[in-house]
Design a protein around this nucleic acid. Structure first.
Lengths: 230, 230
DNA sequence: GCAAATTAATGATTTATTCAAG
DNA sequence: CTTGAATAAATCATTAATTTGC
């Protein structure tokens, strides 16, 4: 709303709503006649004159164009940045192994039969900067269907709930991720879980089936670790 | 980026970009395995742990839903408000006579040959709902092709530039619009019949008749107007 | 220009709802 | 019907962004 002695038009809420509705409806550059009629209508809801309507559409159109262009260029350069990163880190985006993620099916290359992971630590050059990468070997129970695993909070602990998929017992097993996890992934196997009753069942069932926990590995590459800082 | 002793994860720009890219690609509820792999990848670009990824997707999904819902309800209630206003001020939105407004083409019917505008108001049933239709007759200067008229400032005056469409002189004519234009809109009802087909007929039938006219028939059927609102 | 004050975004948690199995 | 798993919604809490007064 316009303050009493305001030097410029301040559209009332209703006026704005109507203008926006018209804009949505396709009005872009009303001619003089349309402007006059719009003005008369809007004048029912507050002081307004033709030029206000004229300028409003002009500004609105221009600013929408601007917003759109800005958005597009931003998206573009984000894409380019991503592609650039892809070149230097080709693993990126190639890790989603679940068919439940349709958009990634064409990118994923998970081979559940050959799923041996390894620890790797090395220094390589990345964009002129030396970077240390680590991968960890994490012991996870064998036979787990990792695609069915889910993350949950349990009390104050962060759990990775995995299905060990035993032929005789399909009961899920809970493996605990230690806290603080801030040091990045200290995952350890829970043979005799301290958690829930279900695990006792598994444990019992496992006792004779020699379901040793051979290590599944999780290849984890932690944060950039510059070897030398300026 | 996370401040040194931050209590919560602050995604780096790159991490955010990647998460958003994944989201755009269709990832919504990654399972534990996916979360771990995403985490490993993102850890290249800053400190991060699995739960951050988990929460990020959860929040992002939820908030996108929220934004969408909000947007929809807002649009709806704006529509309803507009309809309500239509009831009390049925002239509203019935003034756009130009075919240059594509969204209104299905509502408008421009007849350059006919000298009269018609108003029609009535209620009929449409799919079980009562709907009010209106058309108006508008008095405008003769021989003016309103659709070519434009508004311009001239000195300190606001001009309506119209093309009188003279056969011998195609030079545009400038006519000044009186200020304030606020009370315009002299619309009268007319008992003429309906709709596009008819207008088209008129238009076609009269296409060869004298186009010295100055009136435009504008048959506008406003959006559905529930007769009673909650 | 800057810094306190205010507001908006968004990460993290908790609570409610949905849905399927038994 | 009850229960448990999973998800969605609501909420809390901290950080980023913006406004405001000097």
């Amino acid at each position: 709303m316009a303050p009493a002695g305001s030097s410029r038009w301040c559209p009332t809420t209703q006026q704005l709503m109507m203008l926006e509705e018209m804009y949505r409806s396709g009005v872009r550059t009303p001619n003089a006649n349309q402007i006059q009629q719009i003005t008369s209508q809007l004048s029912l809801y507050g002081k307004i004159e033709g030029k206000n309507v004229f300028y409003w559409f002009q500004n609105h159109k221009a600013r929408e164009r601007l917003r759109l262009r800005k958005k597009l260029t931003k998206q573009l350069q984000q894409q380019q940045q991503l592609y650039h990163q892809l070149q230097h880190n080709p693993h990126f985006l190639h890790y989603l192994d679940s068919p439940a993620s349709p958009a990634f099916q064409h990118l994923s290359c998970y081979n559940p039969a050959s799923a041996n992971l390894f620890l790797q630590a090395g220094i390589h050059d990345e964009g002129g900067k030396q970077v240390t990468n680590y991968t960890w070997n994490i012991d996870i129970p064998e036979n787990v269907d990792k695609n069915k695993a889910i993350m949950r909070m349990y009390g104050s602990d962060w759990l990775m709930m995995v299905d060990v998929g035993l032929p005789l017992s399909s009961l899920p097993c809970y493996s605990m991720i230690s806290r603080p996890p801030l040091k990045t992934l200290e995952l350890f196997p829970v043979t005799a879980s301290n958690l829930k009753e279900e695990c006792n069942n598994i444990k019992n069932n496992n006792s004779n089936s020699s379901n040793s926990l051979s290590s599944v590995s999780c290849n984890i590459t932690p944060a950039k670790v510059p070897v030398s800082l300026p």
